[in-house]
Design a protein around this nucleic acid. Sequence first.
DNA 1: CGTAGATTTGAGTTCTGTCAAATTTTGTGG
DNA 2: CCACAAAATTTGACAGAACTCAAATCTACG
Lengths: 247, 247
Amino acid sequence: MKSSPETGLQQLEPYAVSIATRKRQRFAIPAEHDDTLFLIRSGVFLARTSLPDGRHQILSIFYPGDCIRSAAMPPLDGTEITAATDTGEIWRLRWPAVEGLLQDDQELAREISHRLAKQTARLALHNTIIAGLSGDERVAALMTELALRVGKDTPAGIVFEMPLSRTDIAEHLALNADTVSRIVSRMRSNGLFAIAGRNRLVCRSLEVLARESPISTAIRRMHETASHRRAATSPACVTQMKTPGPL
Amino acid sequence: MKSSPETGLQQLEPYAVSIATRKRQRFAIPAEHDDTLFLIRSGVFLARTSLPDGRHQILSIFYPGDCIRSAAMPPLDGTEITAATDTGEIWRLRWPAVEGLLQDDQELAREISHRLAKQTARLALHNTIIAGLSGDERVAALMTELALRVGKDTPAGIVFEMPLSRTDIAEHLALNADTVSRIVSRMRSNGLFAIAGRNRLVCRSLEVLARESPISTAIRRMHETASHRRAATSPACVTQMKTPGPL
DNA sequence: CGTAGATTTGAGTTCTGTCAAATTTTGTGG
DNA sequence: CCACAAAATTTGACAGAACTCAAATCTACG
């Protein structure tokens, strides 16, 4: 169905400004009149916004292949995109330019609108998670998502770098950082996952983890198709690996 | 900027199945392989989903002019669209057919993608509301939205039919129906709005109501531009009016 | 090796959920 | 128009999950 490879949309390259990012690098969302498309090429990025009272929220997590159209961002001041992984690459394009291309390339039009639709579905699913699940279930849902998205299969289980701090997790799941810490500790002591070094998580069984979250089926449907999990020996996705050892 | 009138996209009519709806009428979301576009022509509709544990959630509220692409819905079983107003009209189109039209009509393509983007932004804003605001603030946000969307200016203030039951509100705002009832009663006794007959609310001052919600600015930006509030004597928007009297 | 930032943990508080009962509203049929 | 049953809403009492605040640890990094 899709003609493009993993992160796809290669044909947009001539129109894009490519930016190599480092952790915590921030990108402002242009105003309405300067509609912009960001394309995640590698790494994990976050859409973060701040409420008038000074608190912050993480609206969504972006993975390679995701498109971010500024017009689809809520009109909240202080909304920005931040890099969550140590390194990453993001493309920046003017939306009107993209729109022009779509007319001549129906395949491209189909692909972009499909991706945007899928991300809207993800947003809605996240809504469901926040609105309907307990703290524990929310964390389990996030861990399942990350295992599917940035995890690599190893003999010990699925290993992944956690790109979000406790505070990030809290801001994403509508919880408190203290509460997240408690929940993560509890899940760890229950053996749902182990911690191997700085921010590296090992999930022995995705099944067991998924069982902690009522809507894990939807999460898997949403993130598994886009998943490109591979053995830790794979050369791709270097973004996620700081040290090459499998554990 | 937009060439089309209020609910727009008239040129899609030949390709659409028009459905006149009555309250609580339900529409299934077609599966992935049968991507469909719904177009709200009049009335208020809800996207409702049910969790495995039997609870329900209302993912979003749709107003005239909104587009619902089934591929942008989360992959949750039991997700459906329901009519919230007594009467309404909805168009149903096959997405591939729409996609074909977009190629020949760039203006249409622009308009549809713009609407879909705006609705994604609304979803993200709703996320923010659920995740970051207290119960009272959430209800105030919803009331502000409804006043802007379906309200009509009268000498007594902004009058609107509340299309959502207490349970609906609860399912939309991630609260409990009992809690919603308490909050609504409290807001009413605080004079934020009055109740005039069956499900009819009167908001004396949008400013005062908006002050109850920290992100009212964004809500207004999001819903005011699409708003077509008019005096209660206006012939349009009959959907909202059961009895013609202004109070 | 020390400092700044992140994480963990404890104790107490608050908001919201739960359950049950009372009350109001709505729809229906004489 | 009234009576009645069903549904929706309101209200009270209580329980629980998550938040807040503060202090103790831990970690990264110069």
